[in-house]
């Protein structure tokens, strides 16, 4: 159209290309560097105290496997918290998705026993788990973004409702017939000799989540909405639609996590996920993602998932009472949020 617009759109002259920001600068600004050093220090300390027990392949494998399901939940939670939202329902949605997936596989198997089910039945179970998780995410998103009910309340509601629904479906009794083919491959199988398949899947989800958040327009809009939703709206971003999609995403990931949990435990573990939501939130916040939105990274979340996991393993190996773990995690968590507050206040004063 006219000059002002065109000068942005046409090809520029050379020589004005500023150097890219160094990666370490970005890490430092998001507290990720510090929390990463904490994780490294923990590994070094435990490794130095009991190298023969801590620095083993078996420890590494179990550490990674036990963190996999939480990591998938936490990747979704990272997106939600960057929009300045919260999702308390992920653990219950995980259970619900596992239950509907397992029930589907049983229903498709002769005699209602899915133990010997084939891959077609397993695939159907996966799809139903994802749909179940996605449905809760969609409901959360619509109530939060469209009906404008606070995320804390909406997801507190679905936290209770999804678990209740799972218990209604099963009469409160865990589904125990999980296909062996699934449990032996995704649940306890390994690839390349040493890498557990469950971990591979979690890594794939994490890498994809990181790429979407850092490099795509979807990720950029996620940050923008968390930073200043009104500015995003005025800039023409479809804020309502985007928020619905973010909660849908976290629901889908909770559904996938439910299926992974099913494969790993060979049962639905209905009562075992009541604190998954808090663990996921703690991991995200530990990793430098701000509860006030606009700031955070998947890399930080990975570190945040492993700090509690490493502490647990280390305490077990050192024969420290396991009850110290939550105390230690809480101290680090509160410190991380405090640093974030101080940083924000220092910035906003200028």
């Amino acid at each position: 159209m006219t000059t002002a617009k065109q000068s942005v759109v046409d090809t520029p002259e050379e020589g004005d290309d500023p150097s890219r920001p160094a990666a370490w600068q970005r890490l430092r600004s998001a507290n990720t560097l510090w929390i990463g050093l904490v994780l490294l220090a923990l590994c070094v300390v435990f490794g130095a105290l009991r190298p023969e027990a801590f620095l083993t392949l078996f420890t590494a494998q179990t550490l990674l496997i036990e963190a996999s399901v939480l990591l998938v939940l936490a990747v979704g939670m990272t997106f939600v918290i960057i929009t300045a939202g919260i999702d308390l329902s992920v653990g219950s949605v995980l259970v619900f998705a596992g239950v509907v997936g397992a029930k589907t596989m049983e229903a498709l198997s002769p005699g209602g026993d899915a133990t010997d089910a084939g891959w077609g039945v397993i695939a159907a179970g996966l799809v139903v788990s994802l749909l179940g998780g996605g449905a809760w995410g969609l409901v959360n998103g619509l109530l939060i973004a469209r009906a404008r009910i606070p995320a804390l309340i909406v997801t507190l509601g679905s936290f209770g409702a999804a678990l209740g629904a799972a218990q209604l479906i099963t009469d409160g009794v865990d589904v125990r017939t999980v296909p062996s083919a699934l449990a032996n491959t995704l649940g306890s199988g390994t690839s390349l000799g040493v890498v557990p398949n469950l971990v591979l899947l979690a890594v794939a989800v994490t890498v994809l989540g990181d790429l979407v958040l850092r490099t795509t327009r979807f990720g950029r809009h996620t940050y923008a909405i968390g930073s200043n939703a009104e500015a995003a709206r005025r800039a023409g971003i479809a804020v309502t639609r985007h928020l619905v999609l973010v909660y849908l995403l976290v629901g889908l990931l909770a559904g996938l996590a439910g299926f992974m949990s099913l494969a790993y435990f060979r049962t639905t573990t209905i009562s075992g996920h009541s604190t998954d939501n808090l663990n996921a939130i703690a991991a995200v916040v530990l990793g430098g993602t701000s509860l006030f939105g606009g700031l955070g990274s998947v890399l930080g979340t990975v570190i945040g998932v492993f700090i509690p996991a490493v502490l647990t393993k280390g305490f077990v190996i050192l024969h420290v009472q396991a009850f110290w773990q939550p105390i230690a995690v809480s101290v680090v968590l509160v410190a991380a949020v405090w640093f974030d507050q101080v940083r924000r206040r220092a910035r906003n004063r200028s």
């Binding site: 950029r220 940050y223 968390g226 930073s227 200043n228 995003a232």
Partner: peptide
């Protein structure tokens, strides 16, 4: 000032 304070000027 409808800007997103956590994003850089180019963003």
């Amino acid at each position: 000032l409808a800007v997103a304070p956590d994003l850089d000027p180019a963003a």
